[in-house]
């Protein structure tokens, strides 16, 4: 398993595990970022910038720190 940060651009993956407390989990969950969801990494920002993923056709930017806590399995 790798984190969203390490996932290659344009690659699809399934979210397997989200580290962190209920606060972080909830912030991600309400944006539909949760375990079992299929995501596609669109791009990552330069200079340790945020990561952009696509879930169900909507694009969401996630700060790099958080993206590092989302573990995915590439498909």
């Amino acid at each position: 398993m790798i984190t969203l940060v390490n996932l290659g651009n344009g690659r699809n993956a399934i979210i397997r595990r989200i580290e962190g407390g209920p606060g972080l989990k909830n912030r991600l969950e309400v944006m539909n970022i949760r375990e079992g969801k299929k995501v596609k990494k669109t791009c990552s920002g330069p200079l340790r910038g945020p990561v952009v993923i696509e879930i169900d056709g909507s694009k969401i930017a996630i700060g790099r720190g958080m993206a590092n806590k989302v573990w995915v399995e590439e498909i």
Partner: peptide
């Protein structure tokens, strides 16, 4: 706190 922001089309 980190960024979570929807990037609308």
């Amino acid at each position: 706190s980190g960024l979570i922001m929807e990037m609308h089309s």
